[in-house]
Amino acid sequence: MSTNGAAGRIQIDGVAKQFGDLRVFQDIDLAIGEREIVSIVGPSGCGKTTLLRCIDGLVQPSEGEIRIDGAKVTEPPRGVAVVFQHFGLFPWKTVYENVAYGLRLAGAPKDQIAESVARHIELVGLKGFDKAYPYQLSGGMQQRTGLARALATDPHVLLMDEPFASIDAQTREILQFELLRIWESRPMSMVFVTHSIEEAVLMGDRVVVLRGRPSSIHEVIETGLPRPRTRDVLSSPRFNEVREQVWSLLMHEAEQAERELQEVR
């Protein structure tokens, strides 16, 4: 079960997704390496979250295929965990029970669950909140629980679906750096979907920009920022440079969309 030393390479080949008449994205080719963090940004409705769901096998791509460590993804694979924007905590379960959920389903022995859950609750800084119910927690603490639940399954791929989008700005920043700290202690491959350009640059080794309708990969930018990343990164010239680059790519898209809208009128 332990995935220490396991790879977590993701191979996306010619993937497209279509819902009825609506083609969301197409021609997605992307390879994500071992312990690499790839951020995906794009305008809302570009299908970045759907792409993430395809990687987890929750949604099947209409064309192309996705492989993780060589195995084609047809259903949620072992060793891959998702952190959801809506937290996805079960309101009738305590923090402890929520964090234990993945291990329970995997049929882990009881003492292993107890040990792992306690360790991960502490890791995300929720020690002492084991018995709390989700409604008793702030948004930030709820997402810490969601993160602990994902990490407790000991994944080698972590899929982040705009995890901090519904959390207030200050808490978001705290959580971003805490996630980076956790990643340093146990690196794994990560796909980080976000609509925040700063977040994409701060997290990613590479930033993938989706554009167009249907959308496809417009550009992949190497951030080239050093790790471990601390708050100093935010004020470095390189960070600002990459941020500006991504911003102009997306801005261009937004302006174009606006213009098209004008023409239609």
């Binding site: 409705g45 759907t50 769901r53």
Partner: peptide, 8 residues
């Protein structure tokens, strides 16, 4: 949630 946006 994004799945609602993407799934007409």
């Amino acid at each position: 949630s994004a799945i609602q946006v993407n799934e007409p």
